[in-house]
Design a protein around this nucleic acid. Sequence first.
DNA 1: GCATTAACCACAG
DNA 2: CTGTGGTTAATGC
Length: 226
Amino acid sequence: MTDICYYCLQKSIATEKLDKKELKELELSCSRISFKKGDKIMIQNTPSHHIAFIKEGLVKVHVMGPEKEQILKIVKGPAYLGIPTTIGAKINEYSATAISKSDVCFIGFDVFKNSILNNGEFAYEIIVELSKSDLQFYKKCINQVQKQGPGKIAEALLYFSEKIFDQQPDFKLPLTRNELGDLTCTSRETVSRILSDFSNNKIIKVNKREISILNKKQLEIISKIG
DNA sequence: GCATTAACCACAG
DNA sequence: CTGTGGTTAATGC
């Protein structure tokens, strides 16, 4: 049974631009699925016919490289997932895994495409989201390639605090040390060492996955100078 | 040469 | 899954 998109309170900015008829079509092609932490939402190297929209939850987007796993980004709903790989390729070029309980709508690609072709405002909002994501990725790319360890970790901590947890200085890291390493292009040992180093210098407080940022200024400086 | 940085390995909670 | 210590390789004075 499909949900009624018209009454959905978690519509994307793009979907807000659709009229009643378009929403009805969306509704018919949309299936809403709940994922538990650790569930695979999208699997690399499998065919993709759907666009996913994360209504709620945290998702990690990752690819398996020749050597090891690389986490591309952490996405927080509401956000689209898999537009590039569904439009630009026939198979998924990356995987997505829920790292918290997540609600996701899968939209048939044909319906999604029709909305783009028929509704300019919808299409524009989709481009806005893709563009923002693109720019964010450039930034991450530069940061992770040119900074050294502490800079990368500082950057990641600030990212979680500001973007994922809405400016909260205290948060629970949704990743293991290993995954944080996969995200920041370092080893898990290096992550461990840098976190205890920050902790010793009273920049952050660490208790298992619980992180408190004590000295944000300092963290920003470390992130900036690399 | 010497210092710094970080990966890899190993082992212990 | 984590934290630490030793070792090693690369890089930059």
